[in-house]
Write a protein that binds this DNA or RNA. Structure first.
Lengths: 222, 222
DNA sequence: AGCGCAGATATTGTCGACAAAACATTAATT
DNA sequence: AATTAATGTTTTGTCGACAATATCTGCGCT
């Protein structure tokens, strides 16, 4: 189930995507209970498809289920965010390493083109960059790893959780220009087919992002 | 769903565990189709619980499902094994890094005790070591990371796939004494709370294991 | 004979109903 | 008054039936 490319076919698919969207956006509150009957009336489908959707959400770590008790949306905590970024650092570092050897020259050229596009956007001072551009950048490298496990874990799983934290903790924030430089260096390493350096730079990049988030969290908590 | 500690409660749980066991052991052939009706008669439960079990197996990457077509057991390929070990290297490396800071002194003492036990076993020349002992060693470090995502991805997901490759490609193999030394050094780094070194050593350890598997595969292929 | 189409068959997707377990409420006892 | 037991309600788990989609079979056509 490559959740990024294929279009929704079955009712369970559509319900899964809709529910995931609602959870990420916070329309369904973090920590709240997912009542099967209630959802089934709200989304206009039978309990069976709701159950299937919930099962998939559990696989993404967006909800937690207990036998005979029910499912709850995961609670967002600063510790959880840290854990998430530790995994992300590890996996995206490996993705960058693999991308440096597995991406085609065309794909690398595309990455460079994306960078220049971003540079134009950043120069004009638009904040658009972070949300869409940053995601796109990381997506390309993840896919460039050509490792299906890596791709699945990151894109089908971790990324939605990260988006959830971003949205609900209110982090569209700064880190635009510095992040751009980091991106540039990562692409440079990949262009040079320097796998080790690409991994190191990507890990540092994600570590910095985490630190920036933690600072923001601390200031919000006051 | 912490699949390692909790005991099976519902029929879906039991069916999931049984099916997973049968897939890992090769009783259900790699690449074969999982017919819902057939399984439902074989396992003596309704199609609903079979579907739930298959959904969970998909989350573990043990089966692949296509809408309106059905589920197949994943095909085992040398390339797949390489991809798996790339992810494992990345994640278990991070686990070792985190374990070095997050394990309690008692847990570390337990790790050292496990090592001496293994040493006795290895000295007497028993091959028992690799299967149970090695798994136990890695489990403890993974759990020692105290990172729930890491634990879930590795223990609920990747490890069963690795066991499947081990069983079906016939790898109980050697690498006993050398692996023991590697384990010893890893535990040493963790005992010294040297996170960076623990990660490096664990990554090398897993890389060596992968290389050993690849050699074995190549010789089997002749 | 090979290819394409139409009907028949089998498989997956969805639904509503029933069973079992958890939870809430009330009553009884100390 | 507090705790526990019993009962009733709600929620999840399981089942069999029906609908929709895919696969197979056989016929007709070129």
């Amino acid at each position: 189930m490559s959740l990024i490319t294929e279009s929704p076919i079955t009712a369970a698919d559509k319900t899964f995507f809709q529910l995931r969207k609602d959870i990420v956006k916070g329309k369904v509150l973090s920590g709240s209970k997912l009542s099967e009957t209630e959802l089934s009336t709200n989304y206009g489908v039978s309990r069976a498809v709701i159950r299937e959707a919930i099962n998939r959400l559990e696989a993404c770590h967006l909800v937690e289920r207990k036998a005979n008790i029910g499912a709850r949306v995961v609670a967002l905590t600063p510790e959880g965010l840290v854990e998430l970024y530790q995994v992300r650092e590890s996996l995206e570092g490996m993705a960058a390493r693999l991308a440096a050897t597995n991406m085609t020259d065309e794909e690398i050229a595309g990455l460079n083109a994306l960078l220049t596009t971003h540079f134009q956007t950043v120069k004009t001072g638009e904040t658009y960059y972070q949300e869409a551009g940053d995601v796109d950048f990381h997506y390309r490298i993840i896919l460039g790893s050509k490792n299906s496990h890596l791709i699945s874990i990151l894109i089908d799983g971790i990324y939605h959780l990260i988006r959830m934290y971003r949205v609900q903790f209110g982090m569209a924030g700064p880190r635009v220009t510095t992040a751009f430089d980091e991106h540039k260096h990562i692409v440079g390493a990949i262009s040079n087919r320097d796998a080790e350096l690409a991994e190191i730079l990507m890990r540092r990049h994600i570590l910095y992002t985490k630190n920036s988030f933690e600072k923001k969290l601390a200031s919000n908590a006051i």
